[in-house]
C-alpha cells in the first residue's frame, strides 16, 4: 500500500551533469532512426520488418523506463509494479482487442 509522506514538494535531484538522461536521449534517437531505416531503407519481407521494429520498440521502452522514468528509484517498489501491471494490461487490451476486432477484415 502507498504510505503517507511529508507533504513538501518533490526533492530536486542531486546537481551534476545528467549523463544518464543524455545517453538515454541519444540511444532513443538512434533506435528510432534505426527503426525508420529498417522499415524504409531495407526491403526485408514484411513479417521480418515488423518483428525487428517491435523488438526495437521494446528496447526503447526499457531505456525510457530505466533512464528517464526513475524506475529503479522511489520509496516503495509496489508502486512501480502496480504501474507496470496496469500499463501491460492496457497495452494488451489495445493490441489484442484491436487484432480481434479487425480480424474480420484480414
Amino acid at each position: 500500500m502507498i504510505k503517507e509522506y511529508k507533504n513538501t514538494a518533490v526533492k530536486p535531484e542531486p546537481k551534476g551533469f545528467p549523463w544518464k538522461q543524455v545517453v538515454g536521449l541519444f540511444l532513443s534517437l538512434a533506435l528510432t532512426f534505426l527503426a525508420l531505416w529498417v522499415a524504409l531503407g531495407l526491403s526485408l519481407p514484411v513479417p521480418i520488418t515488423l518483428t525487428v521494429i517491435v523488438g526495437l520498440a521494446i528496447i526503447q521502452a526499457l531505456i525510457q523506463l530505466f533512464m528517464f522514468m526513475h524506475f529503479t528509484e522511489g520509496t516503495d517498489p509496489s508502486h512501480q509494479m502496480m504501474g507496470i501491471a496496469f500499463g501491460l494490461f492496457v497495452a494488451f487490451a489495445m493490441v489484442a482487442g484491436t487484432l480481434w476486432i479487425m480480424a474480420f477484415m484480414l
Partner: peptide, 10 residues
C-alpha cells in the same frame, strides 16, 4: 500519492 498531510492514509 506524495503530498497528503501526515496521518492521511489512502
Amino acid at each position: 500519492a506524495k503530498m497528503r498531510a501526515p496521518g492521511m492514509t489512502l
